[in-house]
Design a protein around this nucleic acid. Sequence first.
DNA 1: TTGCAAATGTGAGGATTACTCATATTTATG
DNA 2: CATAAATATGAGTAATCCTCACATTTGCAA
Lengths: 214, 214
Amino acid sequence: MEGRSAAPHQQDGSVASPRRSPTQQRSRERVERMLAAASALIAAQGSDAMRMGEVAERAGVSIGSLYQFFPDKRAIVWALAERYTAESQACIAAALKDVADAEGLRRAFSELVDIYYRLFLAEPVMRDIWSGTQADKALRELELADSRANAEFLVAVLKRLRPDADPVALETTAFLVWQMGEAAMRLAISVDRQEGDRLVAAYKRMALRELVDA
Amino acid sequence: MEGRSAAPHQQDGSVASPRRSPTQQRSRERVERMLAAASALIAAQGSDAMRMGEVAERAGVSIGSLYQFFPDKRAIVWALAERYTAESQACIAAALKDVADAEGLRRAFSELVDIYYRLFLAEPVMRDIWSGTQADKALRELELADSRANAEFLVAVLKRLRPDADPVALETTAFLVWQMGEAAMRLAISVDRQEGDRLVAAYKRMALRELVDA
DNA sequence: TTGCAAATGTGAGGATTACTCATATTTATG
DNA sequence: CATAAATATGAGTAATCCTCACATTTGCAA
């Protein structure tokens, strides 16, 4: 799905004034350049320090063009965030799709955590975006939706492994486990690497205990 | 915090240029009024929407006086946050101080979680401040330090209950459990009440499993 | 091709807001 | 009382997001 994402947002989280979505080849390329510029600037200094003027200059467009396609600054960050979630959801779905037994879940989940951790460590943009999640209502909602979607993949597996368990309890467990994973990642990258590794390992153990040992 | 700040953001998150600390009775009262005004405004609209001009007006002081005692906007939020942490640390230390056995830990921890949850639900200021934690480096460090301090109280208990366990593992477990508690709270208050209750209950069960069942 | 509407591009300027600083006033102190 | 230190003031500065009136390009039907 590379169509323009449909949810610009405002201070109260409501939808902002609509912006044109690029239909011509020319503008689609320019929008790509804008996002690339934003991504580079966020990687360098963080999204807070990203200036709209810099994004425009780096993308080789005018300020006006930027606002032609993005209602406000946060919409740019949101667009980048949406790409990350779409990508990672596909990856997660694939990893959990064929899990058939407890041992398979153990392996798949363990690997997912490792992948996520490496991603957080290696991707400054992702790190920055998910750090700002709590402060921005639209981003928080995106992350919640993402988390719920990912939790659903886990729920599907759990229902197969424990068909007699209460479905609501499984939902709650999966959602909580997933959200805590993201919290553990954020924590892990904000302390030194050694302690971060220990924390991620501890999380993994804790989560698996919850998921596998009924 | 706010995208439109005029002065360059302190990228390192360190505290800005020092300000006078109130020595006279008169100024101490005024500082209290400033904090009270800020608190009320944060409760009403969130710290992001809090305007320095409004704080000054509501406190009955001039803008200049505000900056006499607080180097910048974030310092006001930080000062409020520090009060909350100091208060809650005392509460936590008291609750865990006399824990002597597994059942005692179970009771004390369970009660602490309940207290925290109620606090999060009832205190919009606290909620707002800890939500912005991820975006503000100084706040994040305060929260990390607070979490470590609280985890230490847990570690002290765990060392008593499981004297043969690896101390580093206990530290890691306690720190992670505590941070996840805060993450669980934040999550719980951002969904509807019923699901929030379920999530907190699930967290409590998960944490106790980790803390009590070796 | 030509004409025209829709899409796209532009950047100076409006509006907001955190923060400064020269100056005035109050308090503490010898 | 004199003097310095602390405190108070608010108009002004600077940074930055975003708008808007107008210019240019593109798609397309006649």
